Amino acid sequence: MGWPLRMFQEEGFYFVTSRCFQGRLLLRPSVEVNEVVGGVLARAVQQNAGNVRQHAFTFASNHFHLLVWARGAALAGFMQYVRANLSRKVGRLVDWSGGFWERRY
C-alpha cells in the first residue's frame, strides 16, 4: 500500500508548487497575466477567509510556488479554485485550450 496523495494537518503551513502542462511557458509575464494572477489569488483567499492565509507567492513562466497556512482540508478547495480559474482565464489570454496543469500540486 502506497502513501496517501496528500496528508493534511489540523492546521499548518504548506509550500505548494504547481507546474504547467509539459513545462510549457503558459504563464509568461505580461500586464494582463499579472492582473489575472493577482485577481485570482485575492479572490481565492477572500473565499477561504479564516481557513487559508497566503503568506508568499512567486510565479515563473511555467510554474508557481505558494506559501500558505491552511486549516484542515481547506487547502484542496483553495487550490482547486486557483488552478481552475488560472487555467481558464490565462488560457484565453495565451490562446491555449486543453490541459493547463500537470496532474498534481
Rank of each mutant, 00 (worst) to 15 (best):
residue 10 E to A: 06
residue 9 Q to R: 08
residue 18 S to N: 08
residue 64 F to M: 01
residue 95 D to N: 03
residue 39 G to D: 10
residue 86 L to T: 03
residue 63 H to T: 09
residue 31 V to T: 13
residue 92 R to A: 15
residue 54 Q to P: 06
residue 86 L to V: 05
residue 54 Q to A: 07
residue 37 V to D: 09
residue 65 H to F: 14
residue 70 A to K: 15
residue 45 V to I: 15
residue 50 G to T: 10
residue 6 R to S: 07
residue 93 L to E: 06
residue 33 V to T: 13
residue 79 M to E: 14
residue 5 L to A: 04
residue 104 R to P: 13
residue 102 E to G: 14
residue 103 R to D: 13
residue 34 N to F: 01
residue 5 L to E: 03
residue 84 A to K: 03
residue 38 G to K: 01
residue 22 Q to F: 14
residue 92 R to W: 02
residue 77 G to N: 00
residue 83 R to P: 15
residue 88 R to N: 05
residue 96 W to H: 06
residue 53 R to I: 14
residue 51 N to G: 04
residue 26 L to Y: 00
residue 52 V to N: 07
residue 42 A to P: 00
residue 98 G to Y: 12
residue 27 L to Y: 14
residue 86 L to R: 00
residue 86 L to I: 07
residue 65 H to T: 15
residue 70 A to D: 13
residue 39 G to P: 12
residue 19 R to W: 13
residue 62 N to D: 04
residue 25 L to D: 13
residue 38 G to D: 04
residue 27 L to F: 10
residue 52 V to I: 03
residue 94 V to K: 07
residue 28 R to I: 04
residue 99 G to K: 01
residue 91 G to W: 08
residue 8 F to R: 09
residue 68 V to P: 02
residue 59 F to W: 07
residue 82 V to A: 12
residue 37 V to Y: 10
residue 67 L to D: 15
residue 13 F to Q: 11
residue 67 L to R: 08
residue 29 P to F: 01
residue 98 G to K: 05
residue 13 F to P: 00
residue 85 N to R: 14
residue 68 V to C: 08
residue 54 Q to I: 08
residue 97 S to K: 05
residue 45 V to N: 08
residue 10 E to Y: 15
residue 7 M to Y: 04
residue 76 A to S: 03
residue 44 A to K: 07
residue 91 G to N: 00
residue 103 R to E: 03
residue 67 L to T: 09
residue 20 C to Q: 00
residue 23 G to E: 13
residue 52 V to P: 00
residue 98 G to A: 05
residue 49 A to W: 11
residue 40 V to Y: 06
residue 97 S to C: 12
residue 91 G to D: 03
residue 102 E to M: 08
residue 87 S to Q: 07
residue 92 R to E: 11
residue 23 G to Q: 08
residue 48 N to R: 03
residue 51 N to Y: 11
residue 87 S to T: 11
residue 5 L to Y: 13
residue 72 G to M: 00
residue 104 R to K: 07
residue 64 F to T: 02
residue 59 F to H: 12
residue 86 L to F: 07
residue 69 W to G: 03
residue 64 F to Y: 12
residue 90 V to C: 02
residue 27 L to V: 04
residue 73 A to D: 14
residue 30 S to K: 03
residue 93 L to Q: 15
residue 47 Q to N: 08
residue 11 E to W: 02
residue 4 P to N: 09
residue 66 L to I: 12
residue 20 C to T: 10
residue 63 H to P: 11
residue 25 L to G: 05
residue 42 A to D: 12
residue 57 F to E: 00
residue 87 S to D: 13
residue 18 S to V: 13
residue 71 R to P: 13
residue 7 M to H: 00
residue 40 V to N: 00
residue 22 Q to N: 10
residue 86 L to E: 02
residue 72 G to R: 00
residue 87 S to H: 06
residue 67 L to Q: 15
residue 44 A to G: 02
